[in-house]
């Protein structure tokens, strides 16, 4: 069979399976992104606070999750949470057994890793905003949270955008690891196709090209967003 038949969407081809894998990869990345950024933002706030204990707590978090290999974090979440929940369930029901959804496990592990990286991006963006912006906010009578929401946050996002787009690309690539715990993403689907058809180079090459296309598409999207965010600068 030639390569085009194998990659086609017909009954002979693997195109539809791979397309489903692409959807899984994209939805995993999209589901992880807001959670990771949300947690990362609060960790950045903790790390820039004048309160030493908050800073310490934030730094411990980033040190741990930036130091562990992503694959190991994934296994720790997948097996660790499973065992932990099982122990808890055993208290109530001695022969309960729990299977964790690999999508959820992947989402949690990737969100934890993403949040520790994004906290650094947010932190350096916070440092780029001069103190006068806060003082100006307080001077016109805004409360702490209003200043954050109305004055600081819009500027912060614009400064952090290049770093965040980088993190998105890293996240997209890291989703490939989730294939190891059995989630049917791009790499898993192409791997199955490779094993069945014995055309490993073709299928893994296709997987690489799909990731490349996703990266190119996201960089287009990000340059559009950056242009849109940069418009505010021009108006001044």
């Amino acid at each position: 069979m030639d390569a085009w038949t194998l990659l086609s969407f017909g009954p002979e081809g693997w195109g539809d399976d791979i397309a489903r894998g692409v959807l899984v990869t994209i939805s995993l990345a999209l589901a992880t992104l807001p959670i990771g950024l949300f947690i990362g933002f609060f960790i950045a706030i903790a790390k820039k606070s004048p309160e030493p204990s908050l800073r310490l707590a934030g730094n411990i978090y980033t040190t741990i999750f930036r130091g562990l290999p992503e694959l190991l974090t994934l296994f720790l979440v997948y097996f660790g949470v499973q065992i932990g929940l099982q122990q808890v369930m055993r208290l109530f029901n001695p022969d309960a057994s729990i299977e964790i959804n690999s999508f959820v496990a992947g989402m949690v592990a990737l969100a934890v890793v993403l949040s520790s990286y994004s906290s650094e991006v947010f932190l350096s963006a916070f440092r780029a905003i001069p103190n006068g912006q806060y003082e100006g906010g307080y001077a016109v009578g805004l409360s702490n949270s209003q200043t954050m929401r109305l004055v600081i946050f819009p500027q912060l996002i614009r400064i952090a955008l290049p770093g965040l787009s980088n993190l998105w690309l890293i996240l997209l690539k890291d989703t490939a690891l989730v294939s190891v715990i059995g989630l049917a993403d791009i790499l898993r689907q192409t791997g199955i196709a490779a094993r069945v058809t014995k055309q490993a180079f073709l299928f893994f090459g296709t997987a690489c090209l799909i990731y490349l296309v996703l990266a190119i598409l996201s960089s287009f999207a990000f340059s559009a967003i950056e242009r849109w965010a940069g418009k505010a600068e021009l108006h001044r």
């Binding site: 690539k173 690489c208 990266a215």
Partner: peptide, 16 residues
């Protein structure tokens, strides 16, 4: 632009 794990698979399984 591509995941390291996919590159590794491409070389280990693909070159086979």
């Amino acid at each position: 632009g591509t995941p390291l794990i996919a590159q590794t698979f491409l070389i280990y399984y693909g070159l086979g």
